[in-house]
Design a protein around this nucleic acid. Structure first.
Lengths: 204, 204, 204, 204
DNA sequence: GATGAATGAGACTTCATTCAT
DNA sequence: TATGAATGAAGTCTCATTCAT
């Protein structure tokens, strides 16, 4: 039957992806060989090429998947929460992200600059926010209720994510220039400030 | 005479450093070989090893030097300016950094996460701001004059730099998710917001 | 079928081994490169590393194999002979070894100090004579028949082999300080003397 | 004055020789670089070439010198001793050599096959015993006194030296196949046997 | 589809030797 | 004479990629 073959293929691919993830957690992509990945996945070297063009291909794939997973979890936590105030919701959401990074700091090691990739999606050569866990919708809704609007919420979100990812990298991974716990209050203060600054009164 | 030899040595080292810089501008360190650097510098491969342990060594050196140069230039521009308001001064300074990065976007390629290294210096296993072009002093002075103080200016500076470096990376290098010109107003708005949020009234 | 692949692998390994042997015959291991061996074997450089860790590995392998071959041949000749007297048997056996070395003096070049390795085998960090062509058994049997015993025959054998190998090296390879033919009578005289001295009467 | 310059040259050469010796004690010649030798001797690399053609040149020189020293010492000890019996004298002398090798086993590491070079000297493409510490003279004298003669004493000496050097190499350096202390009685027994076998009655 | 042996380009590195000072 | 910076040939070894089975 066909489905058995397809299932087998899917499993091979997943095994390769998992192996790539595990290895990326331990070392830089340039220290990882295709041999390593294949061996860890329990398949032959040649098999790798049936699924991925090269190691950069599989790594991009892994990064994308892991970031998405992370943002999805944060989104779910937000949905489950009953925080009312929008700015608090946003900070709660960001904190979910930070907490996941703290728990699993290894993601930071290879997500690096590409962190926002998990939140945005390339379409027509332009980034576009992934709808499923789009927090920017809340900007609009929240704003409207209170007689405000947010000026370009996607950009504000981008600003926040870059700030968080960038500072987490040093604070969580290396405690440099300070630990995440030490830095968190300052980070949150900055986030609140950015959010407030993006608010515009609706002129009528 | 000895000086001729020494002069020659200095020139070789400089040639190597320049070549490394030029190559790092064009491609990732992992695509650069020591052969490339040596050839570009017009010296024999073996000569490279008289000056640097390996390519990571020379790259660290280059990154450190270039970042310092960049911050120094920004500092000099600030000194030469006659902007009065502190927040405007800070934004002017940051803009100087951004402009240099725009002019020479290649720095971003290899400075990456280590950008702040040019501004901070490791001492006793702790980062410490380099005095020569320390803008945080201004926080204190400005604040005092106006009956304010800034809560931990070094941390605020860190926040700002990370935000700038992180967003510039995508906007300048890849125009992703938008061009620097498009993003700049939003960035500055965020910067002003962060600065203002860090202000504290002095209680008497 | 698998066997074709395996057969091919065996052939590659043999080709490498033969090439290493042929080259070791001509020059010192330090003048031989892995490139040389691979080229001579008609395989790619990388293939070498599929079979051997480095050139010392393949050389050890060759030395071990060649010494074993040599002693095996000597043993077979002894078995085929009908010499009665034990001391004559021993000398016959040694002469077989010498004759092989004369025919193929190149073995001496790289067997050097490690000649006895072909006769002894490391077990539990101790040398132990290889059973298949163990001539020391004859010491015991011969002795018993005549009312004698040999004091520690393995050590006597060791003494003899070292003497033979050591002197053959100069006499055969360089005719220094004299040719093997000139030296042989003296060598045999010494061998007989050593054998006789190791004899002990069994006290009753 | 000239002598000062000459003295200086001699010192440089000696420094180089000593360094080569010290290094050869620690590692194989192929692991030693001319840089190592020059640095250890406290001279510039280029200076090395003013005194020796290459590292093999200096090593041959060192080996020759050290072996000669060793045999000279053994000879002096023999002269100072009052042992009467010739065979005992010979064994005493050999033991002197062994003892020196035990004390300074490193000599064995690089003397290897070339040990007898210290005892013999090439002349007209033939080895010839070095007169100064020629123990073979004693063969003749001793023999004559007792109504014997030794059949070609130089060859017997050669046999003995090769046997000793060869077995010491394994026993002293690696305690393989046994320690020198364990082996010594067997070695001496063999030596006595060889000596006795070389004795010939003078027929009249 | 899956395999893994084979490839060989090319990276890194060392070091004997030269030569300007 | 003495130096040591510079050289570059030559060696070791890795690894992405191919391809016969």
């Amino acid at each position: 039957m066909k489905s058995k073959v397809l299932e087998n293929k899917r499993m091979k691919q997943e095994a390769l992806t998992n192996s790539a993830f595990n290895l990326l957690i331990q070392k830089d992509i340039h220290e990882i060989t295709i041999s390593d990945i294949a061996k860890d996945a329990g398949v032959a070297k040649g098999t790798f090429y049936l699924y991925f063009k090269d190691k950069y291909h599989i790594c991009d794939y892994v990064v994308q998947k892991e970031s998405e997973k992370l943002f999805l979890k944060a989104h779910e936590a937000l949905v489950a929460s009953d925080i009312e105030n929008f700015e608090d919701r946003m900070v709660f959401w960001i904190n979910q992200v930070i907490m996941q990074l703290e728990e699993n700091p290894v993601i930071l090691r290879f997500v690096q600059k590409n962190f926002t990739w998990g939140l945005f999606r390339v379409k027509d050569q332009q980034y576009e926010i992934i709808e499923e866990y789009n927090i920017t919708k809340e900007f609009e809704i929240e704003a409207r209720k209170k007689g405000f609007r947010y000026d370009n919420p996607a950009i504000t979100l981008y600003t926040l994510i870059e700030l968080v990812a960038s500072t987490c990298y040093g604070c969580i991974l290396f405690s440099q220039p300070m630990s995440m716990d030490d830095y968190r209050p300052y980070l949150f203060e900055a986030i609140y400030a950015i959010l407030r600054a993006a608010k515009r009164e609706i002129k009528e």
